[in-house]
Computed example of a mutant assay.
Amino acid sequence: MTHTTAPDVPAETRQTQPAGPGRVADVTTTLEPVTGAAAPATRRFLVPVAAAVTVVLWGSAFIGIRAAGFDYSPGALTLGRVLVGTAALTVMAGLAGKLRLPRGRTLIGVVVWGVLWFGLYNLALNAAERTLDAGTASLLVGLAPILIAVFAGLALGEGFPARLLAGIGIAFAGVAGIALATSSGASDGVSVALGLAAALVYAGSTILQKRLLPRVDSLTMTWLGCLAGTVASLPFAPVLLEELAVAPASATLSVLYLGVFPTAVAFATWGYALTRTTAGRLAAATYAAAPLAVLMSWALLGEVPTPVALVGGALCLTGVLVATLRLR
């Protein structure tokens, strides 16, 4: 499969051919790095900084959801977060002054991506964290890279090498462990299923995003996708208004934090890094989000997953590493 690049797409967003069979880490296409020897040293320094900011903020999102989820229902929390995120991204896009709206099938693809990623993903994760602690939810969502590899094997003909199958088996054992106990020590299959659904939507959205990036710049895509997620979440507006009137200030501040930082800022830094390094290399950084979320949940919320859930989470992460990292 080859991709054509629109004439007005920046040079740094051009993509190479898809990875061959068995190359799971880069999944689909990989972005050409533009940070060669001639690139300014400050730019080479800013790429890992941008990636680190994204990972930390995405890890903190699990904490913010848990903090706001006691006073805001899943639908209201979804709408509140993406509404604030859209407003923040509008300001950022206005300051950047380079929005170029796509047309035709590309526009439809971005809208679908936005509804999935900003709407459905948030709704599933918010519902899961009604009973799951933030750390356990982050460990389940951390399965997304292995699901991306599975999608690549099915849809892109990249096959199922032995290490992918081994990783799937290890991760499945981890999910089974998490399903046995949450932080309350009680089995909650529905919440675990919702966490897995969030990971599934995450993986599918990533595949779709990689297909669309050659045709639209990352800031425009993020802004338009968040706007699409906001429109799709508007049916929850009456509930949001009702809950906003009675929610404590701390919960509302958590919603504002989720919209500005893990949504607007984190996606902006992610897009900056993604256009300047390979997608596979950048994706490896997201493995740190789940352990960070567990630590932040313990420090800020006093929540610690049960030993069984921690062992299950460790197995999930091990399975992801086995399935997606190539030995050199």
Rank of each mutant, 00 (worst) to 15 (best):
L208N: 09
P161K: 08
A179K: 01
L165R: 14
S187V: 08
I170A: 01
A176W: 05
G167L: 02
R211T: 13
L194Y: 08
G177Q: 02
A155Q: 12
G195P: 15
A162M: 05
V175C: 04
Y202S: 04
K210M: 11
G177P: 04
S205K: 04
T182M: 14
F160T: 14
V175N: 00
A155G: 12
P161F: 06
L165C: 08
I170C: 03
G159P: 15
G169K: 11
V216I: 01
S183D: 15
P161C: 07
A197L: 10
E158L: 11
A173Y: 01
G177A: 01
L164S: 12
S218G: 01
R215F: 04
A199W: 01
A166S: 13
P161E: 13
S184D: 15
T182Q: 15
L156G: 14
R163A: 06
G195E: 14
T182D: 15
V175L: 01
A179F: 06
A173N: 03
G169I: 02
G204N: 09
A173P: 05
A197I: 02
T206R: 10
A176T: 10
L196H: 12
L156F: 14
G195F: 05
G189N: 12
S184C: 09
I168F: 00
A179N: 12
F172H: 01
S183A: 15
S187Y: 09
A181F: 06
A193M: 10
I170G: 07
A197D: 07
D188Y: 04
I170M: 03
L212K: 00
G177W: 02
V216W: 00
D188S: 06
A186M: 11
L180Y: 13
L194C: 10
R211N: 14
G185F: 03
D217M: 03
G159H: 15
G177R: 06
L165I: 12
A193E: 05
A186C: 12
A186T: 13
F160I: 12
A166M: 11
L219W: 00
F160R: 11
V190R: 15
S205C: 00
I168H: 03
A186R: 11
R215P: 02
L194F: 12
A181N: 05
L212V: 00
Q209V: 02
A193G: 09
L196F: 07
G195S: 14
A162Q: 05
G157F: 11
A199K: 02
A176V: 07
G204W: 04
V216L: 00
L212H: 00
P214A: 07
R211W: 13
K210Q: 12
A186F: 11
A179Q: 04
R215L: 06
V192G: 10
E158N: 14
A179I: 04
G157C: 13
A162G: 09
L164H: 10
R211H: 09
I170T: 08
V192R: 13
L156V: 13
I207H: 15
L200G: 09
V190C: 14
A173V: 05
S183W: 13
S191H: 06
L164I: 08
L165V: 08
A155W: 15
R211P: 08
V216Q: 00
R215E: 08
S183Q: 15
F172C: 03
Y202P: 01
